[in-house]
Computed example of a mutant assay.
Amino acid sequence: MWFKNLLIYRFTKPFELSAEQVEEKLQEFAFKPCASQDMSTLGWVKPLGQQGSELVHTNNGCIMVCSQRQDKVLPAAVIKDALEEKVLTIREDEDRIPSRKERTDMKEQLIFEMLPRAFVKSRRQFAYIDPANGWLIVDSGSHSRAEELIVLLRDSLGSMPVIPVAPKNTAYHTMTHWLQSAAPAGFELGGECELIDSADESAVIRCKNQNLASKEILNHIDSGMLVKKLALSWSGGIEFMVDEQLTVKRLRFSDMIMERADEIHTDTAAEQFDVNFSIMNAELANFIPALLEAFGGEDTSALEAA
């Protein structure tokens, strides 16, 4: 359950629904597996899986939700081969070449016939609402996937007034400054970064297991390169990679934090999930403000305009 990525969104209006109200509204959009002719389906599942009974899980006032997407898998090569076989049969039996429209119709018919027998793949995505801090936290490194969950929340709850958190200071220049001088208070530089050319973003240098304060790295910066991604560790016990959009990836909680969770006796997987979620959201409630402060604080101009 421990999140591996963080996409942080700010509510532009206070979130005032109770967990019970959220549960009731999510029920209408509960996940249903793909029917025979469905290419994909999306809905809410129980965060606790088979151990749970509800579509929300609450702790410390935070509301955890989990979406599930299921997609039919029809490899393009399989459809292409089947179509070419049909075209070849027509050429041999009728001595003619099917038109473009006829080929399109045949392809659609093939997909219709194959869908009920297609393999399916599923993926889940966790997120939680923190009403006290005004955040929606999504365990995703992809804004498009996070947006899929947000749209589903908006459809389910009637509204979801959130925007990505933004720092006051430009992330590119802030992270570049850290390499030139020092990491902000409470943070330490890791051993990995990604540099881009300020004049040509297609020019990229990736550094791994490097001393980021070395002369070699600084020479790249002096030549006009900027930091796009940077590995950091926070004194509160979290290691991570952050990029220019404040997307946090490869999130890792320290052994000390994980041991605290292990020291609490639990009898079931559901109880352990609850303990992990409680510790995680408490740690992130301290980490996120520290991260935003490192970038000069949160830019609230969009909130004031909302």
Results as ranks from 00 to 15, higher is better:
residue 73 V to Y: 02
residue 165 V to T: 10
residue 282 A to S: 15
residue 73 V to K: 12
residue 2 W to D: 15
residue 63 I to E: 02
residue 75 P to K: 01
residue 242 V to H: 03
residue 135 W to M: 03
residue 261 A to G: 12
residue 210 Q to D: 11
residue 284 L to H: 02
residue 188 E to D: 11
residue 216 E to W: 00
residue 41 T to D: 13
residue 28 E to C: 01
residue 167 P to E: 02
residue 150 I to V: 09
residue 69 R to M: 10
residue 279 I to Q: 05
residue 283 E to G: 01
residue 79 I to Y: 08
residue 77 A to E: 13
residue 76 A to D: 11
residue 285 A to K: 07
residue 114 M to H: 12
residue 82 A to F: 13
residue 96 R to I: 08
residue 105 D to T: 09
residue 171 A to S: 15
residue 233 S to K: 14
residue 301 S to I: 03
residue 33 P to H: 07
residue 161 P to K: 07
residue 131 P to Q: 12
residue 155 D to L: 11
residue 255 D to W: 00
residue 9 Y to A: 00
residue 22 V to I: 11
residue 267 D to H: 09
residue 33 P to E: 15
residue 182 A to M: 03
residue 202 S to I: 01
residue 281 N to T: 15
residue 118 A to T: 09
residue 78 V to F: 12
residue 192 E to Q: 15
residue 252 R to S: 09
residue 67 S to C: 04
residue 79 I to G: 00
residue 236 G to L: 07
residue 286 N to V: 04
residue 72 K to N: 07
residue 226 L to W: 15
residue 15 F to I: 13
residue 280 M to A: 02
residue 44 W to F: 15
residue 284 L to F: 03
residue 167 P to L: 04
residue 149 L to F: 14
residue 162 V to N: 05
residue 265 H to Y: 12
residue 176 T to A: 08
residue 99 S to C: 03
residue 132 A to N: 07
residue 187 F to R: 03
residue 57 H to P: 00
residue 108 E to F: 03
residue 266 T to K: 10
residue 36 S to D: 11
residue 135 W to N: 05
residue 13 K to P: 02
residue 100 R to E: 06
residue 27 Q to G: 07
residue 148 E to W: 06
residue 219 N to V: 01
residue 245 Q to M: 10
residue 7 L to R: 15
residue 139 D to F: 15
residue 240 F to I: 07
residue 105 D to R: 14
residue 167 P to I: 03
residue 62 C to Y: 00
residue 83 L to F: 11
residue 123 R to G: 00
residue 270 A to C: 04
residue 54 E to A: 14
residue 90 I to G: 12
residue 31 F to G: 06
residue 118 A to R: 03
residue 292 L to Q: 11
residue 39 M to T: 09
residue 69 R to L: 07
residue 206 R to W: 00
residue 80 K to W: 02
residue 301 S to M: 04
residue 95 D to G: 04
residue 57 H to C: 08
residue 208 K to I: 10
residue 79 I to L: 14
residue 178 W to R: 05
residue 278 S to I: 00
residue 78 V to H: 06
residue 54 E to D: 11
residue 245 Q to E: 13
residue 301 S to T: 14
residue 104 T to P: 00
residue 182 A to Q: 14
residue 8 I to E: 03
residue 212 L to M: 08
residue 69 R to N: 02
residue 117 R to E: 08
residue 138 V to L: 06
residue 185 A to F: 14
residue 277 F to Q: 09
residue 298 E to G: 05
residue 86 K to F: 06
residue 178 W to H: 06
residue 152 L to V: 02
residue 89 T to W: 09
residue 10 R to Q: 09
residue 95 D to Q: 14
residue 110 L to C: 06
residue 171 A to D: 09
residue 18 S to M: 12
residue 236 G to A: 06
residue 287 F to V: 10
residue 279 I to F: 12
residue 220 H to S: 13
residue 146 A to D: 04
residue 118 A to G: 08
residue 295 F to L: 04
residue 206 R to T: 13
